[in-house]
Design a protein around this nucleic acid. Structure first.
Lengths: 213, 213
DNA sequence: ATTTAATTCAAACAAGTGTTTTAATCATCT
DNA sequence: AGATGATTAAAACACTTGTTTGAATTAAAT
């Protein structure tokens, strides 16, 4: 009848974890099925059996983290909007940006096993591979629209197009930061180790000033 | 009759052009030697003969555009610094950023055949492939140091570390913009077509405000 | 215990990878 | 002209890629 806890769950999770780590480290195309399965300690055919294909796998890797993260960001944005409506005032832009950025940067700490996901997602939007970029954009687009809307409510005197571009600058700064943050190698030696809170303050003051320049 | 220009030059340039276009379109790992040589209309072995390997090729692709571009940016930065010294004042941060960003965004127009390079270079810093990222960072590092120094001279009351991070945010915004700008597909349909001058004004006001937040 | 379905496994598959090889072709100079 | 060195050409190289196969193993249900 109904199965309670099939061992299949372990295999799938092991594969997702390994794939997430390797995709962050070497990119989608730079990671082979054999590397993934070897690291996960499962058979080579397991990926195609459980996920169907490499493309389906990367979609699941992205979905597993991005859907919960986007739920949190969506709720935070709607809370800011609702709080403003209740007080009969427009939302404060710094709170709007905080609602979006804080869960993003702190996602790494709330999900300690997801630290590599931040690195991976940081370059997904400009990934050379269509598959990765398309999946990422597909899941981000509704949330970005919401962010755009709430931003326009916070700064009603600014043209929508202007705020659209400035949000793109903000995302560029954020993604770039996400990619180098948590990336031990590269140029981490030049920047003192920062905790997420300090980094959040840094980026928040920067993008807030930029948005209402 | 005597040919002043040896035909070898043509082959190398054809390969560089095709590689630049395809690397921008599909990434370093996503582009095969056969695609490059087929598009260039040359023999498959020509790449290894003229460049040595695929890695050496991508290094030449990057160098061909980045060295001249960096020379211009370096001169512009030093001009801003010299002009400030002459007047006995500190340089203006907006002029510092302009000196760096303007040649970058206008590079596409001064070199019409290099329009894809901007897309390519826009993601080089976070490219999943070590080769691309290392080459790019190697050629950018001295210029970034200069930019950092002149920025610190423009804002002497701000801690060096703070300005270091804010410059990273600025580069993130710039690279992200470079990558989506000139990329006809993706989300160009949502953003009205902008000329380089308007885009420059947009990003400059944003990052200037962010830097001196 | 026997049947049935789900999962794992080793092996092979066809296609694609960057690179090398060796002979043919070309341009240039004495 | 012929000789020399640089460039091109087609083919093969050794290797990796994602995926599929069919048998072996495991778990669940009757």
């Amino acid at each position: 009848m109904k199965k309670t806890v099939p061992p299949q769950t372990d295999t799938k999770r092991l594969i997702l974890d390994s794939a997430e780590y390797l995709f962050a480290e070497k990119g989608f195309r730079g990671t082979s099925m054999r590397e993934i399965t070897a690291m996960a300690g499962v058979n080579l055919a397991a990926v195609n059996y459980h996920f169907g294909s490499k493309k389906k796998l990367v979609e699941d890797v992205i979905r597993r983290r991005l859907l919960p993260l986007n739920s949190v960001r969506k709720k935070r944005l709607e809370d800011v909007r609702a709080a403003a409506v209740e007080k009969g005032k427009k939302p404060e832009i710094s709170r709007v940006l905080l609602a979006f950025i804080e869960p993003t940067l702190f996602f790494k700490e709330s999900n300690p096993d997801a630290e590599h996901f931040i690195t991976f997602i940081g370059r997904s939007m400009s990934d050379p591979d269509d598959t990765v970029r398309d999946v990422f954009i597909r899941y981000m687009k509704p949330l970005f629209h919401l962010l755009h809307d709430v931003t326009c409510e916070a700064l009603p005197d600014y043209p929508r197009d202007l705020l659209f571009w400035r949000l793109h600058f903000t995302l560029g700064a954020l993604f770039h930061t996400m990619h180098i943050y948590g990336n031990i190698k590269s140029e981490a030696r030049e920047m003192k180790t920062l905790d997420a809170r300090t980094l959040l303050d840094l980026i928040l003051s920067y993008v807030t000033a930029g948005m209402k320049a």
